[in-house]
Amino acid sequence: MKTTFEELYDKYHQDLFQYIFYMVKDKQQTEDIVQEVYIKVLRSYQHFKGESSEKTWLFSIARHVTFDYFRKLKRQRNKFLEFFNWGKEGETLQSDQQAPEEYVMLDDRMKQIYQCMERCSNDQKQVIILRYIQDFNIKETAEILNWSTSKVKTTQHRALKVLQQCMMTSLREEEGYHEES
């Protein structure tokens, strides 16, 4: 088991960490999810038939585990909302995200895009991460997500539109703030 783990770690760990981090934006949660991914992978490695590439297989498991995490988070949030009977304010509740030190070092523009990613749906976000941060091509992204390439392209297109609008809004707000001051 250790050998399998080491091989997977050497080949994919940083990519895997990166993908999950940008989905959840929390290092602690990322560490937990990555661990969960490895457990699932190691338990089912003997059943891996090689129908897709190892990397694609690993990332599709990562995707499922990450989405399980989101579902869990949503359930918790709903319970919380019911308990306090909160309305819209409660819907904006996030996991206790702590900005990583890498974020602090970013310039304003990069911080904006980092923040704007949160305006995308989870589907849009994962396409953006896989395509641009992870540098997967459209075919590989489609394989990981088990989608058609058309769906990847359409989602990518919409995600870029959301980001574009968010960046424009941030820019306008920034300009308005400068004019006021």
Binding site: H13, F21, R109, M110, Y114, Y132, I133, D135, L163
Partner: peptide, 15 residues
């Protein structure tokens, strides 16, 4: 936008 996305920092696992 794509350029900015590509420039987002690589977040490392320090373990």
């Amino acid at each position: 936008l794509k350029e900015l996305l590509r420039k987002l920092p690589k977040i490392e696992d320090k373990r």
